[in-house]
């Protein structure tokens, strides 16, 4: 990843002027819902306003083609967790947080599980091989189970 970082960094100053006005527009969508789906179109937006939809579809196809099946499974789980977490939050805002313990442990369970799954995805991603030399896929999965067990033990204990 390191060399790529440099490659991306060096040409960027030159590229700033044309986009100077646009980042604000892009940022609102990016910070409002910091999801992958929201970010993709926005970056596209900067480059080329036309045919955003087409590019998004291209991205999607690219993702479907290139991503391994296992990682897709993880991503589906992540989307699920994110949905659940958002529902919990919306419920908390609308209906109140009365059993605060319960809300908190439920919400932390989704957040924690999300984070752990992302970590698993990062560790098993072949592109991050350099960062995680010492961690095999099996080890990563065992770690993931270990982390989840701690997480859910605490959540159940906290739920009252």
């Amino acid at each position: 990843m390191a060399p790529k970082k440099n490659a991306a960094a060096s040409p960027s100053p030159a590229a700033v002027p044309p986009s100077a006005a646009k980042p604000t527009a892009a940022v609102t969508s990016a910070s409002g819902t910091p999801t992958k789906a929201a970010n993709k179109p926005s970056t596209k937006d900067i480059r080329n306003a036309q045919d955003m939809q087409e590019i998004a579809v291209g991205m999607w196809n690219n993702y479907v083609d290139k991503t391994p099946q296992r990682v897709k499974l993880l991503d589906a789980f992540l989307v699920f967790l994110m949905t659940v977490g958002m529902w919990q939050f919306v419920y908390c805002v609308i209906a109140g947080n009365f059993p605060f313990n319960a809300f908190l442990s439920g919400f932390s369970a989704t957040v924690g599980q999300f984070v752990l799954t992302v970590s698993l995805r990062i560790q098993t991603n072949p592109e991050n091989k350099a960062d995680f030399e010492s961690i095999s896929h099996e080890r990563a999965f065992a770690d993931f189970i270990f982390g989840s067990m701690i997480l859910h033990f605490f959540c159940v204990n906290f739920i009252n």
Partner: peptide, 15 residues
């Protein structure tokens, strides 16, 4: 990583 875009750095900074 998905989109090696040139404007990405400035976008990141703003964000």
């Amino acid at each position: 990583y998905q989109l090696p875009s040139k404007q990405f750095q400035s976008l990141l900074r703003w964000m």
